[in-house]
Design a protein around this nucleic acid. Structure first.
Length: 493
RNA sequence: GCCCCUAUCGUCUAGAGGCCCAGGACACAGCCCUUUCAAGGCUGAGAUCGCGGGUUCGAAUCCCGCUGGGGGCACCA
């Protein structure tokens, strides 16, 4: 496919949180534009007065920015084809529908919502397809016009056309029967356009060459094609993207868990991981590559490699992807992110800290943390590294566990403290060598001694490897903790 | 009800007539490493390529039918 400098758009409506499915469309469109050296346009389709939501626009913008998607034209950036809010382009749509009326491609319809509902109910009773019966199409409506009654403008589906062919970039040739098409509404009674009118007018005005949108739009594409024809415009190329479904194969919705991209942000997913995961839903490069840098993605992303069938959003794989990005992400970036997240967490939970959470402190525990987490969610991170910040206190179960260690004696434990104390070069390697010598001398099992010390200095049976933990904690704090723990050993057994 | 799209391991997918009694990844199991966890490495299980017909010397790949799944049929986008 030879594509030269395409102009493509992402056109969300500000009716709620930015859905991951929509964001995947944005990612594909953005990648497509960047790959072919084209322009990516953000257009806000705010023509539904009723469903418009405060803050939704900000959420969409935040979501896009978080993923690292920038737009060449649109809100905040401006551009030569503005305005980029449909609510500011009303005149354009009104003119367009007037032109259509003048050229006999549209007509005014005075049917009330109640009439239409009744009509549809009757059709359903008779098992007929719900469709506008065109009662205003040929009837004389001049009396209603004279009374200034509210009206909508409907498109006049031509009667001399058989089939409409959509040449989809992903699905190929798709045929539709013209007679099955409804005389759909172009302009609502409040003077706002419907999606059908607005997207055609704007895509033309904004010189959009390629439309990438979700599959749910495929069946209304013939309507759009007819509109392009009525206006005498050349339609853009269309690519209808496969949907993203939940784990029960139904359309991804709230009951499947998080659907807003921003929820993933707050749940501890990294934007690069999220993007990488999402791009692999419906697109693949080959039979093996899973991890892509953004730069590489721009290089290799083509429409030809987009699949046709819907895919299921698999959180397990997202988690794995995220853990891969955590392991390889730059220390600077992740350290400051984690520092903020954990200090907020401790503050809101009023956790009493032995050591404050600082960049330096996080840097110290970073390596052992990165290897063990799948998200940078505080709930997941805190148990892994809290030993460094909180004073450990063994629970009842742990005290009993320590006493059950058969090959452990208070002698070896005391000598372990002295040994630790005598190490000047307090490194993982030195500590290990010294402590292992004790094992031989006292014929103590590694798990008995090390397991006990682990509880003493971390307050947990499960922790990062002991010797690195010593090193991280430092000599002073390690000895302090070991000594404080002595009492749990010396109590008579 | 009508129209449209779609169909390879549980999931994401590779596969465009012989390279495939189907490859990779996630998840799963076992082993190795090992002071616990994690990471990593290795091995394994897992798909008669939804089903049935064709076409062909040969089909996961092409055609038809069926079935399953998804989407659409608003003064919502």
């Amino acid at each position: 496919m030879t594509i030269n400098k395409p102009r493509s758009r992402f056109a969300p409506s500000p009716t709620g949180e930015p859905h991951v499915g929509n964001m995947r469309t944005a990612i594909f469109t953005w990648l497509f534009c960047r790959h072919y050296g084209g322009e990516f346009i953000l257009r806000i389709e705010d023509t539904d007065q009723a469903r418009k939501q405060d803050g939704a626009l900000e959420s969409i913008i935040n979501g896009l920015r978080w993923l690292g998607l920038d737009w060449d034209e649109g809100p905040e950036t401006g551009g030569s084809h503005g305005p980029y809010f449909q609510s500011e382009r009303l005149e354009l749509y009104q003119n367009a529908s007037n032109i259509l009326i003048e050229n006999n491609w549209a007509y005014k319809c005075y049917c009330t919502p109640e009439e239409l509902t009744e009509m549809r109910q009757n059709q359903q009773k008779q098992k007929l397809p719900p469709q506008y019966d065109r009662r205003c199409r040929n009837a004389d409506t001049s009396d209603k016009a004279a009374k200034n009654l509210p009206y909508v403008i409907r498109f006049k589906i031509p009667e001399n056309i058989d089939t409409i062919v959509v040449d989809d970039l992903i699905r190929g040739r798709v045929e539709f029967q013209n007679t099955l098409l409804d005389d759909f509404v172009l302009l609502k009674s409040d003077g706002f356009p419907t999606y059908h009118l607005a997207n055609v007018v704007d895509d033309h005005e904004m010189e959009i060459s390629h439309v990438l949108r979700a599959e749910e739009w495929l069946s209304s594409t013939p309507k759009h094609l007819l509109l392009y024809k009525a206006f005498g415009y050349t339609p853009p190329a269309f690519a209808h993207l496969p949907m993203i479904l939940g784990n029960d194969k139904s359309k991804l919705s709230k009951r499947h868990g998080a659907t807003s991209i921003l929820e993933y942000q707050t749940n501890g997913y990294l934007p690069d991981a999220m993007l990488n995961f999402l791009v692999l839903l419906g697109w693949s490069l080959d039979d093996k590559t899973e991890i892509f840098s953004l730069e590489n993605l721009i290089n290799v992303f083509t429409i030809e490699r987009i699949g046709k069938s819907p895919s299921i959003f698999n959180t397990e794989k997202l988690n794995w992807m995220n853990s891969q990005y955590i392991k390889t992400s730059s220390d600077n970036y992740i350290t400051s992110a984690i520092t903020t997240i954990l200090s907020d967490y401790c503050e809101t939970n009023m956790i009493e800290l032995e050591t404050p959470i600082t960049q330096d402190a996080i840097t110290t525990v970073l390596d052992i943390l990165k290897e063990r987490i799948k998200t940078i969610n505080p709930e997941e991170m805190w148990p892994v590294c809290n030993f460094f910040f909180e004073t450990p206190e063994p629970n009842e179960q742990q005290r009993l566990l320590v006493k059950s260690k058969a090959s452990l004696s208070s002698e070896i434990y005391e000598e372990a403290i002295n040994t630790i104390n005598s190490i000047d070069d307090f490194t993982e390697e030195k500590i290990e060598i010294s402590l292992r010598k004790l094992l031989e001398k006292y014929e103590c099992k590694p798990r008995d001694l090390f397991g006990t010390i682990r509880i003493a200095i971390t307050g947990k049976e499960v922790s990062p490897p002991l010797f690195i933990t010593f090193e991280i904690l430092g000599k002073t704090r390690s000895i302090e903790r070991m000594q404080r723990f002595t009492k749990y050993l010396s109590v008579a057994t």
